[in-house]
């Protein structure tokens, strides 16, 4: 099953850092997300894109996580060579991860 079946996500950007929210549609899926979608797995999934560390923050009151991906935007939104310089489409790739 893809992550997309039980969670949604939005990407934000600041400089060379990307952040991906991961929000459970149903609170009862939150523990499963906590267990399976670790910072290490996200770092591994985005290994062609993210050069720096990945930090996961938990926001249990929202049934959500926030993944902060450092050195992830080709040197920064304003100088990246990438077609999607802001990395806006990264959230959709996160949701394609298999659980």
């Amino acid at each position: 099953m893809k992550l997309r079946e039980i969670a949604h996500s939005r990407t934000g950007d600041k400089g060379n850092i990307s952040n991906l929210s991961l929000i459970a549609y149903r609170m009862e899926d939150y523990p499963r997300l906590r267990q399976e979608v670790t910072a290490e797995r996200v770092k591994e999934w985005f290994r062609d894109i993210v050069q720096g560390e990945v930090i996961r923050y938990e926001i249990p009151s929202l049934g959500a996580f926030n993944f902060v991906l450092k050195d992830a935007l080709g040197g920064g939104v304003t100088r990246s060579l990438s077609l999607d310089a802001h990395g806006k489409s990264l959230s959709s790739a996160l949701l394609d991860m298999e659980l």
Partner: peptide, 16 residues
């Protein structure tokens, strides 16, 4: 709630 949650976490790092 879902639209609001996405925007709460938009472009933030440590939520605290």
């Amino acid at each position: 709630p879902a639209t609001v949650k996405e925007q709460i976490l938009y472009e933030i790092h440590d939520p605290a």
